[in-house]
């Protein structure tokens, strides 16, 4: 029943209240607590400054962001292309191919890491092959490169499914209209198809970036010496018992990721409004 004026206001507030309570209890409160813990060390607010000043932390922050950005770019390129292709073409074996491409969804990060070792580790497939062909054993599983490979593999399904869903909703007549006007295939792609897919690519990219920023399970499986931020946080917390530093790093990691997500959302928002 729709009630008038103040009545419906109160009702709306009452209905929203549980969500607000959960949000406060499980998000705002822990975050605030984390921030306070970050200040509680002997260095006080300097703990936060150290994240940006001390080379060890800054390098870790930068390299984590670079890794996440690279994973996002490569995943968007691979999954965007194949998603567009799969949405437009019907062929025997297509369903199987989609199933295979979305397979990584079922694995936790640890298993992904294990698979990277099987592929590019010391006893891995690439190593064995390269030794027999070129006489040199190529091993890159225990480094940033291995983590990069694992995260691209891990991120492909989400981007692929989002792009496929968006591409299937495109009006094929828009591409035909562009072609009738003389647009070459690459022009149709750049001027018509990609702008229409922009909201989907942005939101899928943001999720991909956020996931890669928090990469822990895979990194932990591959090596303890990969300096991504989550690993540094883990080390500070468990080995150095520097709880204030761990908290400060966690807080910064959260803020950076949240900024990336909201930036993507606002960009997608404007383009969604323009496309509606």
């Amino acid at each position: 029943m729709i009630q008038s004026g103040i009545g419906s206001r109160v009702l709306a507030l009452a209905l929203v209240a549980p969500a607000v309570a959960v949000f406060g209890a499980f998000f705002l409160l822990p975050l605030a607590r984390l921030f306070v813990v970050g200040l509680s060390g002997p260095e006080g607010w300097r703990t936060y400054a150290a994240v940006l000043v001390e080379p060890r932390y800054l390098e870790s922050l930068v390299s984590t962001m670079l890794l996440a950005a690279a994973v996002t770019a490569v995943t968007l390129a691979i999954a965007g292309t194949s998603g567009l292709f799969l949405a437009r073409n019907r062929f025997p074996g297509r369903a199987l191919l989609v199933a295979l491409l979305t397979f990584p969804l079922v694995f936790p990060g640890v298993v992904i890491g294990f698979m990277v070792i099987m592929l590019a580790g010391r006893q891995g497939l690439i190593g064995t092959l390269s030794e027999q062909v070129a006489g040199q054993r190529i091993v890159f599983a225990y480094s940033m490169a291995g983590l990069f490979l694992g995260y691209v593999y891990f991120s492909i399904p989400r981007v692929l499914l989002t792009v496929m869903a968006a591409a299937e909703k495109l009006d094929p007549q828009q591409a035909e209209a562009a072609r009738a006007l003389g647009a070459r295939p690459w022009q149709v792609l750049v001027h018509v198809v990609l702008p229409a897919l922009k909201p989907a690519l942005l939101s899928a990219g943001a999720i991909c970036f956020a996931t890669a920023m928090g990469a822990f399970g895979t990194a932990f499986t591959l090596a303890t010496r990969i300096d991504v931020l989550p690993m540094v946080i883990y080390t500070e917390f468990t080995l150095q018992a520097n709880i204030a530093m761990a908290a400060a790093l966690s807080f910064v990691l959260g803020i950076v990721t949240w900024l990336a997500l909201s930036l993507a959302r606002s960009l997608a928002g404007t383009s969604v409004a323009a496309a509606a």
Binding site: E176, G182, H191
Partner: peptide, 29 residues
Amino acid sequence: PIERRNVGMVFQSYALFPNMDVAQNVGYG
């Protein structure tokens, strides 16, 4: 192919490009 036939085409769904304004749509060709 259609892009080399120089035909004008008008569709039931209008098929205008939502990422461009009116003048940009008209000027696309």
